[in-house]
Design a protein around this nucleic acid. Structure first.
Ligand code: MN
Ligand code: MN
Ligand code: ZN
Ligand code: ZN
Lengths: 146, 146
DNA sequence: ATTCTATTTTGTAATAATTACAATTTTGTA
DNA sequence: TACAAAATTGTAATTATTACAAAATAGAAT
C-alpha cells in the first residue's frame, strides 16, 4: 500500500522535504495526470480518498514542491495556476474552445537560455493558444452536418 | 488638444470601434508606457485626468481593444493580467525581484507558428523569468559594501 | 442643430482564486 | 515514548475579475 508511494517518498527525501500524505498524494496525482490541473481539480480529486484534506494544504504543498523545482506552475490560463510535474522542458498549448492544455514538443533554441536581454533567466515558458485538433474536427463536422 | 488623440482615433476608426474618451486615453497610455501595466495602474493613472472613470470601463475597454488585436494581454505574472500595445511580436522577461516586465528581442522560430502539435495556433507567448540586469547589479553592490 | 437608439460608462454587488492566520495535529528525532 | 519544529486544517481576509442595471454618450438620421 505504502509501496505505491515509494517513488514519491524518494523524491521528497532527495529534496529534504518532510514526508506527509498530502504531499505524496499530490505528487502521485500530478505524476498520473498530465492534464495540467488547477488547485481545485487536485483538491476535489484527493478529497475523496482523504476527506480531511484542506484546500490550504494543497496550496502549501504545491508551493513547497514548486520551490524545490519538482513541479512547475503554468500561468497560461490567466485566471488560475495550472500544475505540471517537471520532467523535461516543454512548451504548452491552451485550447480557447475546450480549455485543455497540451504538451507541445517542438525544438526551441531559447528553451535552455540562461540569459535574455542581459537578464538572468531561471524559468522559460512557451505558450501557444488557439483551437485544438479535436475542437477543429468537431467544428468541421458541425458545419457539414448542420 | 483633441489632435493629441488623432493617432488613436484613427486606430479605433480603422477597427470600426466606437470612439470614446476612455478608449482613447487607454490606448494613449499604453502607447506611451511600454511597462506592461495592469488594470490598476492604468485606472489609477487615468483617473487623475478623468475622475469619473470607472474600473469596469477600464476592464471593458481593454477587452474590446484586445478582441480587435490592437493590444495583447500577458499572463506572465500569474496573478493579474498585464497589457501591451501590439506592435511586432516579442517575448517578455519578468524579474522575480522587482516585478518589472521587459521586452526581449530574440529570434525565435516559433514566434510566427500557425500550427503546433497539430493544433491551430492564434497566439504565441514566450515568457522568461529570473532576476533582471539592474537587480543583479544592486545585489552585487550590496554584497560588496555590506 | 435636434432627435433617437444602440452602445458605453458608471457604481455597486457578486464571484473566484489566493493568502493570512491561529489552533490542532503530525513528523522526525532523541 | 516524549518533544519541538513543522505541517495541516478551517476560517477569515484579500485581490482580481465579472455581472448587472441605471445613467450618460456616440453616431446616424432627420
Ligand atoms: Mn506539461
Ligand atoms: Mn511587450
Ligand atoms: Zn479544444
Ligand atoms: Zn529586477
Amino acid at each position: 500500500m505504502i509501496s505505491m508511494y515509494k517513488k514519491y517518498v524518494k523524491i521528497l527525501k532527495d529534496h529534504a522535504i518532510i514526508i506527509t500524505s498530502p504531499r505524496l498524494d499530490i505528487l502521485k496525482f500530478l505524476d498520473e495526470h498530465h492534464t495540467h490541473p488547477d488547485v481545485e481539480e487536485i483538491y476535489t480529486s484527493l478529497k475523496k480518498k482523504h476527506p480531511s484534506l484542506s484546500r490550504t494544504t494543497v496550496y502549501n504543498s504545491l508551493e513547497i514542491l514548486k520551490k524545490n523545482k519538482i513541479i512547475q506552475s503554468l500561468t497560461i490560463s490567466g485566471s488560475e495556476l495550472r500544475y505540471d510535474i517537471k520532467e523535461g522542458l516543454h512548451h504548452h498549448f491552451l485550447c480557447k474552445h475546450c480549455g485543455r492544455i497540451f504538451d507541445i514538443s517542438i525544438t526551441c533554441p531559447n528553451m535552455n537560455r540562461t540569459v535574455a536581454g542581459g537578464h538572468h533567466v531561471e524559468e522559460v515558458q512557451g505558450y501557444f493558444k488557439g483551437i485544438c485538433k479535436k475542437c477543429q474536427t468537431k467544428e468541421k463536422e458541425r458545419r457539414n452536418n448542420g
